[in-house]
Each structure stands twice: as C-alpha cells, then as structure tokens.
Amino acid sequence: MNPWAVYALSGVAMFSVGLVGLFSHEHPVKRILASNIAGSGVLLVLVALARREPTGAPDPVPHALVLTGIVVSVSATALGVALARRIARIDATAKAESTGASDPEAGGGSA
C-alpha cells in the first residue's frame, strides 16, 4: 500500500473515533477534545491526498486548506473552553453561596 493511503486511512480512523466520541461523552472538555481529534483526522486525510504523486513537491492547495482548518479549529476550541470555564465558575459560585461561603472566587478554588 502507498504511504499516502496508509496515512489517509489513519486519518479516517481518527475522524471516526473523534466523531463517535463526541456523541458518547457528556463532559464538555472531553467533547471538545473529541471534536479536535475528528478535526485532526480530516486534516490528515487532506495532507495525505496532497502527497499522492511520489516525486516532486506535494500539492500546495490542500496544505493551504489545512492551515486554514487548524486556525478555525483552534478558534472553535478557544470559544468552547471559554464557555465551559464560565459555566464551571457559575456552578462554583452557586455552590459556594449554597454552602454559605462569602467569596465566590475562593469557593471555586477550595471546593
């Protein structure tokens, strides 16, 4: 089997693992991780496709697409973790209030 096909299949497998993982987890961090894995899988397929001609330089178009894809995926991750963090903090504050602690920040830290 050609090297590109080996990597493309690997990418496909990563994508499947990530996609199925995304729908079988409930923790937001796990789900964000899963979506990153699925994303890496798709990008690996693209990079593999660029290297099908064994000689000469690889196809630069998929490379450019992958660079864009990485930036989009880090943006989505940053937004996702920002939301997850805020939710966790609201929960921590609520917990601190219900247990009578006065400082919500401290409540989050010592819970």
Binding site: N2, A5, A8, V12, A13, L49, R52, E53, P54, D59
Partner: peptide
C-alpha cells in the same frame, strides 16, 4: 465506509500542483 471511498481515489493524482 470512509476507507472504501479513500481507497477508490486515484493513487498518483498531482491535484492542482
């Protein structure tokens, strides 16, 4: 399913090089 599609791609395509 995805592997089937990938393996039916042409094996020495230069793309848009």
């Amino acid at each position: 399913m995805l592997g089937w599609a990938v393996l039916s791609l042409p094996s020495d395509d230069p793309g848009l090089t």
